[in-house]
């Protein structure tokens, strides 16, 4: 009880002080996870739709794999991206290891299966409902994809938010490919891990509360925008 109170007051003090180091950490967390989700959405939404609408041999296998990869262990993804970007690895010359770009790459790998698998399900359900109609209208394939993605936009938004939650909460991948370098690649989650290892539990928990608050704020903003849009549509 005492620890929780200490954590709360630490969190409050951190937020109200606008500590520049703290702000840097928050900004980096949002930028890295935001970029990863953006890239994953740009690739994953159409990929999921195409997977839902196109029959080809091996599709079942692909769907199962995609669903399974929603649970990719972040540490393993981090390790794979590390080996790729290491100076001794195939992309070593790009000098990307221990940079925010490396962290975006790792998180994109984590988020992409979530966005693609969930949007595949959403589009498949819509196709079952409206497929007959769209076929009778003679809509072209790209047209169908766009129509169904637009129709399912509120469900798809939830898929994207699930991806954001995954990205902003994981620590295993960014720790390995980012290195938790102070002022360069330290995010909310790696900072929490560091403070925990220093035994400063109130500070760690305080940072955790701020992270939860941040993710809640992002979700609230999306929710409000969605509601306004729905109302306008009647």
């Amino acid at each position: 009880m005492h620890d929780l109170a200490a954590a709360l007051s630490t969190a409050l003090a951190l937020v109200t002080a606008f500590d520049p180091l703290m702000l840097d950490i928050v900004r980096l967390s949002v930028l890295v996870s935001g970029a990863a989700v953006l890239i994953a959405a740009v690739i994953g939404l159409p990929l999921g739709a195409v997977l839902a609408l196109t029959a080809f041999p091996g599709r079942g296998v692909l769907v199962v794999l995609l669903n399974a990869f929603m649970g990719l262990p972040p540490v393993v993804v981090g390790l794979a991206v590390y080996l790729l970007l290491s100076r001794a690895g195939p992309l070593g010359e790009m000098g990307l290891l221990f940079t925010p770009t490396a962290m975006v790459m790792a998180q994109t790998v984590l988020v992409l299966p979530i966005v693609a698998a969930l949007s595949r399900q959403v589009v498949a359900d819509l196709w079952e409902e409206y497929g007959e109609q769209l076929r009778s209208l003679g809509a072209s394939r790209p047209n169908v994809v766009m129509t169904l993605l637009w129709d399912g936009r509120f469900s798809l938004l939830t898929a994207v938010l699930a991806g954001f939650g995954r990205a902003s909460a994981e620590v295993g991948a960014v720790m390995i490919v980012g290195g938790n370098i102070s002022g360069v690649t330290r995010t909310m989650t790696t900072a929490i891990a560091l403070e925990t290892s220093k035994g400063d539990l109130p500070l760690a928990l305080g940072l955790g509360l701020i992270l939860i608050g941040l993710v809640t704020a992002v979700n609230a903003a999306v929710f409000l925008v969605g509601q306004a849009a729905r109302r306008r549509m009647g």
Binding site: V32, A35, V42, V104, V184
Partner: peptide
């Protein structure tokens, strides 16, 4: 997406000269 990558590229992020030092948790902590 390109803008995001650009924004996050190490060049845009920090112009300064730097080296990477691998060290131990005992010295850092």
């Amino acid at each position: 997406m390109l803008a995001a990558m650009l924004l996050l590229s190490p060049g845009a992020w920090a112009q300064e000269r730097f080296i990477t030092l691998a060290s131990t948790t005992s010295t850092e902590q």
